[in-house]
Write a protein that binds this DNA or RNA. Structure first.
Lengths: 144, 144
DNA sequence: TATTGTTATACTCTATAACTATA
DNA sequence: TATAGTTATAGAGTATAACAATA
């Protein structure tokens, strides 16, 4: 049997630290974690309903409302009733929102690069490749 | 710039799935996550105070009390006042506790091996080596 | 007075249920 | 009546503060 600690027990503190690092950077940019997640989702493409956005980022629809309020207030997203179905809210990132998100992301990635520098070039590549492969596995396949 | 998603955003869902998998296994063994963490800490060596145990597993001292109650009730740990300082509680795993912990750990690792089988042998090795190296970094060094 | 463990309280985050408006 | 969004409420998990026992 391979002698190692449980994978989850090993990775969880690492992820916790990475999230703490991300929160520090985001705080410098005046953005909350949920705001960053929303901006990142909308930077890929606009979304037609708040429920769809919540679904896309794995959040409850009731939980993102105050975040959307603040983002709209700050002019980082637009949020208008769909003329064709005025129950729905068309969501899109603004130019300011895009700038804010990308500036924050650049700082986050710079810090992650600094951390990854602890690895050899070969291990770094393999680690990222493996992490990508594992995180692409369906939740059910991992849970079994 | 390397084209990849944020590291934390990539790893967090993976860890979440791994924890869900672990919880499923632990449930089959009738052990909670906190109980498993406590048993794992005590399987390495006994601990002289509850505060030290809490510190060791990164928990609040008030938060492990009900867990210790249940473990003691189930006969998986021993917990006696230190004769030399009766404020302190000497904590140790019992033979039953050790059996329970190791049985659970074997199943957890078996599932993790199944997940890791998605990787090539080389990537699997490099991933584990890198994960170990990164998780050994001090929290402050990652946060920056 | 200081320390260990415990209990009581408050706070944060999240999920559930009820409500408004549009369809 | 059904759906999108919102607000109000309740629940779980955690941290903080007060307390009891021992030193």
């Amino acid at each position: 049997m391979t002698e190692r600690r449980d994978l989850a027990a090993m990775l969880q503190p690492l992820v916790k630290s990475l999230i703490a690092a991300e929160l520090r950077v985001l705080e410098e940019h005046g953005i909350s974690m949920w705001s960053y997640v929303v901006l990142s989702a909308l930077d890929d493409s606009p979304i037609r309903t708040q429920a769809a956005l919540a679904e896309a980022i794995g959040a409850d629809k009731t939980r993102i409302i105050s975040t959307l309020d603040r983002l709209q207030e700050a002019g980082l997203i637009s949020r208008e009733p769909d003329p064709e179905d005025r129950r729905a809210r068309l969501l899109a990132i603004t130019q300011d929102g895009r700038s804010a998100r990308r500036a924050a992301q650049a700082d986050i990635r710079a810090n992650e690069e600094r951390v990854l520098a602890a690895l050899s070039a070969a291990d770094r590549q393999a680690f990222l490749r493996a992490a990508q492969a594992l995180s692409a596995m369906p939740h059910e396949e991992i849970v079994g």
